[in-house]
Write a protein that binds this DNA or RNA. Sequence first.
RNA 1: GCGCCCGUGGCUCAAUUGGAUAGAGCGUCUGGCUACGGACCAGGAGGUUAGGGGUUCGAAUCCCUUCGGGCGUGCCA
Length: 581
Amino acid sequence: MSHILGVVKQRVSEALVAAFGANGQGMDSAVTPATDSKFGHYQCNAAMGLARVLKSNPRAIATRIVEDLKVGDICEAPEIAGPGFINMTLRKDFLTGRLRDLLGDDRLGVPLDGAHGAAARVVVDFSSPNIAKELHVGHLRSTIIGDCLARVMEFRGHETLRRNHVGDWGTQFGMLIAHLKDRCPEALTETSEVDLGDIVAFYKEAKKRFDEDESFKERARLEVVSLQSGETEAIRGWQVLCDQSRRQFQEIYSLLDIEIEEKGESFYNPFIPDTLEELEKLGLIVESDGALCVYPEGFKNKDGDPLPLIVRKRDGGFNYDTTDMAAIRYRIREEKADRIVYVTDAGQAQHFAMIFSAAEKAGWLGDVEAVHVPFGMVLGEDRKKFKTRSGETVRLRDLLDEAVRRSRAIVDEKNPELDEVTRDQVARVVGIGAVKYADLSQNRISDYVFSFDKMLALQGNTAPYMIYAYVRIQSIARKVGIDLTTLTPDDIATLETPEEVDLAHGILRFPEVIEAVERELAPNRLTDYLFDLSQTFSRFYTENRVAGDPRETTRLALCALTARVLRKGLSLLGIQVLDQM
RNA sequence: GCGCCCGUGGCUCAAUUGGAUAGAGCGUCUGGCUACGGACCAGGAGGUUAGGGGUUCGAAUCCCUUCGGGCGUGCCA
């Protein structure tokens, strides 16, 4: 069953054909949610656009559309307003019927997607930290946004490949392996696991020696050669370093409740020769200053000359242009992706535009949709790149711990009667949820100013506000002594109060919002909706007594559905809910 | 220099992609507790959407231009 917006659009489209024949065929129905609730629930803006084409008066056209508009079963009589807006208000009995359907629908009205075919396969490339370094604030947005988009895709029924394109290959491994051989030679023997401790400190030690000691530098260079030629000891050292890093990454991903599968840069190494050979055969490779280049059209460097993707460096080595070309080819050819989504910072927009253009030129892309999902930087409150007071990059671990610590302090103050274990649980869910929500609720593309105080604020458009709405619903259920999951369609009688009607429509908008999030790859569409729904619920809660009221059962059903939408919506953001806080 | 992105109340942000009188939150001011959890609700004040020009029934949104900021601009990712 399609969502309400879809039904209204369909009806308007039919009316356009009925009113204007062939002229109305394929015309945009121009139906949107009402810009203001005083205009009803949905509005059609088609008449104004048509007026130009048909050289007629927009209000007259609106009248003709309304004459052919068959919506009596879902709306009150449409009204024409202003220059030619057609406003529609949903009937209460229609809303009631839809709510009854939802009570028996565990997908809350959200259909499995048919747009990309029954079983579309989507690659979501996100997070992507570097081995032997650390997840820091620069990885926050990619990780959180990528996870959210992946969750939405999964919910819509796509087979989703969550890919961590970690930086696990490159010249920096020379110095790391050389340092490993000195500091921890036992790591290179086949036996037990070793613990290098803080891998980042290890990296810094190696870097220091590399910068200060010429002979070490030379050894590092030789280790790179060994590694690339597959020499056993070097490979072993590399694996040890990767394992250590992986373990530290996993701690953060667990804390964030994020699943992701690592397929790092090294994974694509075996596919590089074929990739280059194919590009060569296609005549796309040009040698320049000893490097092998592909020149997609339309990109210029600062001298106005064509800008290349360098797929093999002068020294024979490979870089991220190479890997990304091999990776996109692999994802299309081997993994049969229908859609590939790259969640990286906006600064890489040109790079991906070039990769996509080159892949198109090579004939790899075909019907596959490759899309870069850019996002802005995380800024400090001084509007400069977010750093610690001492100028260091902020570690994700520290940031998350701080969020949990602060929310713990708030729980201790607000709800000291909760036991220790519960308060820890609340602190974790609210703290992590607040960090995620603050990020996802921003328009992706703009830079965003990081502030603990604002994200953990207990009011406003924040995670705690929504979780609180959910908690209050659970509290009502406890008060009444009912399991909200046991309500059935028969438990909804009629909708009476304005707050009930608003809440009903809010609940029923969920599917159209999910569709928009998926289409626009814009998580903030979902956060805006959930905030709106929470506010609508709070108004309902204030004005409409549930427990003990004659309308208790219907209202409980509204509460149950609100809770389910909140829980599902928040879970798509990667945020958990609580029964008490 | 060139390319891309951005500029919206004091602050942080929306605006369903060209729709109606530009909406929220924070802060501020006023009101509401016989509490289904006040981490709440109702209301007020606060805007020339950086400036200017254009396109059209209609522009924060599209085009041109000026100013301001960020990022990118061949062997880092």
